[in-house]
Computed example of a mutant assay.
Amino acid sequence: MSQKQLPPQFYKLMEELQAVDFVLVDLTLYLDTHPNDMDAIQQFNQMSEVRQRLKIEIEKIYGPLQQYGNSYSSYPWNWNESPWPWEL
């Protein structure tokens, strides 16, 4: 299967999504040991909203990012189109 060419904007959005995911992982680890830090919880919730908006924007233009009901598919079924997020 040949990999389709995507515009530079796709890679910019994916890089932004990966940065937000890194922040969320880091905050999760911190909150595991500091569960009462209200500022960190607020940051986590804010970044969760940013991630959700990015995910929706990316999927609306380029297709689904996650399987098992975490992302919708357009018609026709588009899970067989590459590149997949782990191929970037």
Rank of each mutant, 00 (worst) to 15 (best):
Q3H: 09
Q5F: 06
S48W: 02
N78D: 01
N80R: 09
M1F: 07
A40S: 04
F22E: 14
P83L: 01
S48H: 11
E15V: 05
S48N: 11
E59H: 00
P35H: 07
N80S: 15
L17H: 08
A19L: 02
P8D: 02
E16W: 01
Q52L: 09
L17T: 09
Y72C: 10
E16Y: 04
W79H: 06
A40D: 00
S74D: 14
L29K: 15
N80M: 11
G63K: 06
P85G: 09
M1E: 07
V25H: 08
Q18C: 03
M47E: 03
A19R: 01
K55R: 13
Y62H: 07
D26I: 06
K60Y: 03
I41D: 01
V50N: 08
D39A: 15
Y75R: 14
D37Y: 02
E59S: 02
S82K: 13
L6I: 11
L31C: 10
I58H: 03
G69Y: 06
V50R: 15
P85D: 10
R53Q: 13
I58K: 12
T33E: 06
L29Q: 12
Q46M: 08
S71A: 06
E87N: 04
P83I: 03
A40G: 00
S73V: 12
L17I: 04
P8E: 00
Y75I: 13
Q5R: 07
P85L: 11
L24I: 09
T33I: 09
P76F: 01
Y72A: 14
Q52P: 03
P64T: 06
N36H: 03
S48G: 13
R51Y: 00
Y62P: 11
K60H: 02
E16Q: 05
V50L: 11
W84G: 03
N36C: 01
Y30M: 05
L29N: 14
W79N: 03
Q46A: 14
Y11E: 11
M47H: 08
E59D: 03
F10V: 07
Q66V: 09
G63I: 05
E49K: 12
P7D: 04
P64G: 09
V23M: 00
Q3A: 10
Y72T: 15
F44T: 01
L54A: 03
S73E: 13
Q9Y: 04
K55W: 00
M1I: 07
P64D: 11
G63A: 13
L29P: 02
D32R: 15
M47L: 00
